[in-house]
Design a protein around this nucleic acid. Structure first.
Lengths: 147, 147
DNA sequence: CTTGAACTGAGAACGATTGTCAAAACCCGT
DNA sequence: ACGGGTTTTGACAATCGTTCTCAGTTCAAG
C-alpha cells in the first residue's frame, strides 16, 4: 500500500475492468473471494486479470463501496452491501447473508474502549450460523461453492 | 514449575515441545503469530520445529486452551487467555490486550440470529484502538514488532 | 496528435500455512 | 526394564492466497 491520497477521487480512472468487477458484485448476493469473482468474470466473458481483480476489490473496500471480511480460514471475501455501518449474519452452509445493525453494540464497544483509555477505535463483528433452510432441508440450494 | 496440570488429558500426549509452547505463551502478554512464537522458542534455547508449533497452537486453540484471532492482514495470532467466553480490546500500536465481556452483546447476537431463523450460531468480535500510553507519548515501549 | 500519468496483465515472487514421511518419543502390557 | 504399536516430531517440499514487477495499453488533457 502506497500513499497518494490528495483528493477524494484523485487518480481513480473509470475503466472497463472496474465496471466489470462492480457488475459481478452487483449480481452476487453472498460474500465471494477474489478468485471466485475472477472466475465469474471469466465465465461472463469479461477478460480481467487476476491482479486487477485483487487491486480493484481492495480499492473498493478501502473506499467503503464494498464490504470485506475474512473467513475462518483467513481468506478475504467481498460483497456489495448497503452503505452505512452494519454487521453480517452469514450462513456457514449456503452463504446466505443478512445485514444487521446493532446500535447497542456500537455504544457498548465505545464505552468499553473509553473505560480502558483506548481511542480511535474500530471493531469487527460477524455472526456465523446455519440458516433455516439449511438446518431444515439439510442443505437446499447451495448458493456458494465450497470444496 | 510443577503446577501446570489444568487440562484433563484431552487425548493428547504431553511432550517437551508442547510444554515449551505453553511456556512461551505464558510469558507473553500479547497476541503473537506462530512464527513469532517459534522464534521466541528458538531464542529461549528450546528446539521445536515450526510445523510442530503450528500444530500445537491449532490444537490448543481448538481445545479452547488459548485464544486465536486474525490480524487485519489475515495472519493468525495466539494468546494465553482466561477461560470462558470473552472478547478483546487490542491496541494496534503496542499490542496491549484487554479482555472484555459483554453479556448484552451475546444476548443481542442470539436474538438477531433467532429472528432470522439462524441456529447453531457463533460470533467473532474484536475491538482495535490506540491505548492511552500510545496516544499520549506517541508510542512508548513498543511491545510487539510489526515492520 | 503528443505526451505523461494511471491502469492493466502475465507471470514471478512472497509469505503463511499445510502436507509428507522417516525417525524419535511415548505408553502400556508383560 | 523391554518390545511393540501408536503418536509425535521435524526438515523440507508443496500449496495457496495475495502481492510485486514491469513492459505494454489506455486515458485525458494540451
Amino acid at each position: 500500500m502506497t500513499e497518494t491520497r490528495t483528493s477524494p477521487d484523485s487518480g481513480r480512472r473509470p475503466t472497463r475492468q472496474r465496471a466489470a468487477v462492480a457488475a459481478v458484485l452487483a449480481d452476487v448476493e453472498e460474500f465471494r473471494s477474489a478468485q471466485e469473482l475472477h472466475a465469474l468474470l471469466r465465465e461472463a466473458g469479461e477478460k480481467v486479470g487476476l491482479a486487477t481483480v485483487y487491486r480493484t476489490l481492495q480499492q473498493m473496500a478501502a473506499d467503503g463501496s464494498i464490504d470485506m471480511l475474512r473467513t475462518a480460514e483467513g481468506e478475504a471475501v467481498y460483497r456489495a452491501c448497503s452503505t452505512g455501518h452494519h454487521h453480517h449474519l452469514v450462513c456457514r452452509e449456503c452463504g446466505r447473508t443478512v445485514e444487521v445493525e446493532g446500535p447497542a453494540v456500537e455504544r457498548w464497544a465505545t464505552k468499553v474502549s473509553e473505560e480502558h483509555g483506548f481511542s480511535d477505535v474500530q471493531h469487527t463483528l460477524e455472526i456465523f450460523g446455519t440458516c433455516a433452510d439449511c438446518a431444515d432441508g439439510g442443505g437446499v440450494t447451495p448458493q456458494v461453492s465450497r470444496p
